[in-house]
Simulated assay, not measured.
Amino acid sequence: MPIGDRLQQLIDALNISALEFARQLGEKRGEKIYHILHGRLKPRYETLEKILQTYPDLNADWLLRGEGLMFRTLPQTPLSALTLDDRLRNMEFLLFQLNERVALLQQTNDLLQQELEQVVSQHKVINLSYVNHRSDLPTEG
């Protein structure tokens, strides 16, 4: 998932506008953020650093690579203060992340299975070659 999409998810989770998000980062106008959200720009290091400083509970691994949960800790808001829609959105997001993680693990598993099959196949060839070579040797007697 592109970083622009992750930023949009963050903005949605914070329940603010892209302009308000830009202002919280110290930007007077939201042009840079809008360009990042629409894929016309990639965020610079300074922008990423501002985001992580502004939102200290934001998971840097999630922001940079899309790995893990969006926030390192749960919001301090009591669960009862969250609306049902908020809870459902959080659950949908967690399920989405889990599905992505499962897909990645399945791809990794498939690759490892292929590598294992290649190693086993090569081992059989080497073993067969060794047996054939040994049968060519004269026997003592």
Results as ranks from 00 to 15, higher is better:
Y45D: 15
I126C: 07
L84Y: 07
Q8L: 04
S135R: 11
S80W: 08
L95G: 05
L88T: 07
I16N: 06
D110G: 04
R44F: 07
E31K: 03
L105T: 01
V119E: 14
K32I: 13
R134F: 14
E46H: 04
R29N: 03
H38M: 09
E46A: 13
Q53P: 00
T47W: 00
A60K: 10
I33C: 02
R87C: 09
K50I: 01
I51F: 07
S129D: 11
S80L: 10
T139I: 12
H38S: 15
L25V: 01
Y55A: 01
N90L: 14
E27S: 00
V102P: 00
D57W: 05
K28P: 03
R40C: 06
T73H: 15
S129Y: 04
Q8H: 03
S80R: 12
E140W: 10
L84I: 08
K42C: 04
R89L: 13
V125F: 13
S121R: 10
L88E: 06
D5G: 13
P78Q: 07
A13Y: 08
L64R: 12
E140K: 12
S80Y: 06
S135G: 00
E49V: 11
N15A: 10
M91Y: 14
Q97I: 01
A103G: 05
S80H: 10
L52D: 02
S121T: 13
L41Y: 15
L64H: 11
T47I: 05
R72M: 09
E49W: 08
A18W: 04
R89V: 01
R101K: 14
L25Q: 03
E92Q: 09
D61M: 10
K50P: 01
A103E: 12
P138W: 03
D86L: 08
Q24D: 10
R134W: 09
D136G: 13
L25Y: 00
R40W: 13
L82S: 07
T54V: 04
L14Y: 03
T83I: 05
Q114I: 01
L112M: 09
N127M: 06
M91P: 00
D85G: 13
L10W: 03
L111W: 01
G30P: 07
I3V: 12
F93L: 12
V102Q: 00
L94V: 13
T83R: 07
R87V: 11
P138G: 04
E67N: 09
R89N: 14
I36P: 13
L104N: 06
I51C: 03
E100S: 02
D136Y: 10
L41H: 15
G66Y: 07
E115R: 15
L95K: 10
P75T: 14
T108I: 02
H38R: 14
H38I: 05
P78F: 07
A13C: 06
I126S: 11
T47E: 00
L48W: 05
R40L: 14
G26Y: 03
R23T: 03
L69V: 10
M70G: 09
H123P: 01
E67P: 00
L88G: 00
E31W: 05
V131M: 12
D5H: 12
I51K: 02
D5V: 15
G68N: 07
